[in-house]
């Protein structure tokens, strides 16, 4: 079989981009799960809201891509914090599964409302002028925007890792994950930290949404199927480690890209098949602790 390097590297790039989104989303899921003990089913919906926020900023207020990159995650993160304060907070002491059911309901509401007003088709969002065009790397043509998405996502992932693993705030956060009562006794406002953590996780998802808007178009259901793949990513990687989530996310994206080239029929299912294999070999996930 002769390998078409041009096509292969194009699929690899698509894989890397999807991997960036998997990493950003599974990172947020892991951070939220650590603090709130909730699997945020609404993660796909807030990813979609991030893309729509960028769309609204551009079309209603004339605010472009660069400010949107900060404003959209902030707005959606704030929305997430309101959800946490008004709803998620009340089920904190119940079984984890109630959190899954509640956020599933929230996802249905959010996606349903957007579908009502925008249907199911995609809305275009233009690539910002500074990132238009491409570079010829010799073996492939690299659209600049796609390269930007991969590099920027990687930077954000690593910054989040640094924030949680290497700063004082992150130390409080990790301590509160282990023993919230004790951390509270030291005078740290744990409920506020929980709210901020949920906001951070949701904001990361919204950021992924903004990044994907120029590539995948803005659609009400853009996050609905994605979140199920991200769940599989989380099962494969385990939620015990931040770095683990990042590496697993990017790796699976690359594997998916390779599958698209070598055996396209399986590109939709390869992540799920890998999940099955990992469960058979190492049920606790690649980096995870037994749960």
């Amino acid at each position: 079989m002769s390998i078409n390097l041009q096509a292969l590297s194009a699929q690899l790039l698509v894989g890397l981009i999807n991997g960036s989104f998997y990493a950003l989303l599974s990172l947020g899921l892991a951070v939220i799960f650590g603090m709130l003990n909730i699997i945020n089913f609404a993660h796909g919906a807030v990813y979609m809201m991030g893309a729509f926020a960028a769309y609204f900023l551009l079309n209603l207020a004339g605010i472009g891509y660069w400010p949107a990159l900060i404003l959209a995650p902030l707005a959606v993160g704030l929305f997430g914090m309101v959800m946490e304060r008004t709803m998620l907070k009340w089920i904190a002491n119940l079984d984890h599964l109630y959190g899954l059911l509640l956020t599933f309901g929230l996802a249905l509401i959010i996606q349903g409302v957007f579908q009502n007003y925008f249907g199911s088709s995609g809305l275009p969002y233009a690539i910002p002028d500074a990132l238009k065009g491409g570079m010829n790397l010799g073996f492939m043509f690299l659209p600049i925007y796609r390269g930007w998405v991969v590099i920027f996502s990687l930077v954000v992932c690593l910054a989040t890792w640094f924030l949680i693993e290497r700063t004082r705030l992150g130390a409080y956060l990790r301590a509160a994950t282990e023993n919230p009562t004790l951390v509270r006794a030291f005078g740290i406002n744990v409920p506020l930290m929980i709210t901020l953590t949920y906001g951070l996780g949701v904001g990361l998802a919204a950021l992924a949404g903004v990044l994907s808007a120029p590539i995948n178009q803005v659609r009400p259901l853009m996050g609905a199927d994605l979140i199920i793949v991200v769940f599989a990513v989380v099962v494969i990687g385990g939620m015990g480690s931040i770095m683990g989530s990042i590496i697993t996310g990017f790796t699976l994206g690359i594997i998916e890209g390779l599958t698209k080239y070598f055996y396209p029929e399986a590109s939709n299912t390869v992540v799920f098949v890998l999940m099955v294999l990992v469960l058979l070999v190492k049920p606790s996930g690649l980096t995870g602790r037994a749960a």
Binding site: G105, I109, I110
Partner: peptide, 12 residues
């Protein structure tokens, strides 16, 4: 779909 979501939230 929205109503189903609301029922989920209210029930939980």
């Amino acid at each position: 779909t929205v109503i189903q979501g609301v029922i989920f939230v209210v029930c939980v």
